[in-house]
């Protein structure tokens, strides 16, 4: 066989996309340098400015705390053991709420994307909830469910499920129509078309939705503890705020942020794994 058309040289699967450093001559330093290093330097610079600005009195550490203050407060928080109970209760609220959101959001989103009638029936509600500031439902949830863990779980759920739903629906709807007719052409049943084309085609949107839902779910978790709570990371943030303990406030907020980054990173790795074909 002639192979005049075989010009594409595929990348090795898993081969990293990291920048390959070219020879340095004539290239400005900001192009030459590793991007990860730049990120690290930027953060370091920020921390130094933060610390220094407090020490020389540009701003009062009373309001903005300082890196060293945050570290000290963090050590105390861990030593007191309070951090574990807070993380346990907040973690439980988040995990239950998020898992419920996944269990409901993905199947419902797939169904709404696929069945036009179902979409027509439910989209007014979904659109309404999506555009509402959903944290405002908290007082209502407390009225309904009391002051225990239930309203917090519910808030995590409604915060997480809507962006996930939206993303899954649009994933199904934007599957290439030509691909659908390929399935149809081979005589595939609706179910087979769904299983072999729509579902794999929606994977990137599903994962994107899961990542957004991590962020919004964590917001739900923190806000859920702002009222009628006595423990949890969100409660710790309010408590510290009311006592003007900005150091402790930052510690709790940073723990939440780290959780978000880790979860989102894990999902990014999952996505990479599931979409090896997107090279």
């Amino acid at each position: 066989m002639t192979s005049a058309v075989e010009t594409v040289r595929p990348e090795k699967p898993g081969a990293e996309t990291g920048p390959v450093s070219p020879p340095a001559k004539g290239i400005p330093f900001y192009r030459r340098t590793n991007h990860r290093l730049i990120s690290v330097l930027a953060v370091a610079l920020f921390l130094i400015l933060w610390e220094v600005s407090g020490r020389v009195g540009i701003v009062s550490p009373f309001f903005v705390s300082s890196p060293s203050g945050v570290v000290t407060a963090g050590i105390e928080y861990f030593q007191s053991g309070l951090v574990w109970t807070d993380m346990k209760i907040s973690g439980l609220e988040f995990v239950i709420g998020y898992v419920l959101a996944v269990v409901v959001g993905i199947p419902l989103g797939l169904a709404m994307g696929w069945y036009k009638t179902l979409h027509a029936a439910l989209s007014p509600f979904v659109d309404f909830l999506f555009s509402t500031p959903r944290v405002a439902f908290l007082p209502l949830l407390i009225v309904w469910m009391g002051v225990g863990i239930a309203p917090k779980v519910a808030l995590v759920f409604i915060m997480a499920v809507l962006p996930l739903l939206m993303s899954v629906i649009s994933g199904v709807k934007t599957v290439d129509k030509t691909l659908l007719s390929v399935g149809k052409l081979f005589g595939a049943s609706q179910l087979t078309v769904f299983r072999t084309i729509v579902l794999p085609g929606s994977v990137p949107s599903i994962i994107a939705g899961l990542r957004v839902a991590v962020g919004t779910g964590l917001i739900g978790m923190v806000v859920g503890e702002l009222y009628a709570s006595s423990e949890g990371l969100g409660y710790r943030i309010v408590e510290a705020g009311q006592l003007f303990q900005t150091d402790r406030l930052f510690v709790a907020a940073i723990i939440v942020a780290i959780a978000g980054v880790l979860l989102s990173g894990a999902l990014a790795r999952l996505e990479k794994r599931l979409s090896a074909w997107r090279s």
Partner: peptide, 11 residues
């Protein structure tokens, strides 16, 4: 064993 994205238009 290649994915479509790794094939040329002719392939």
């Amino acid at each position: 064993q290649k994915f479509p994205g790794q094939l040329s238009g002719g392939m």
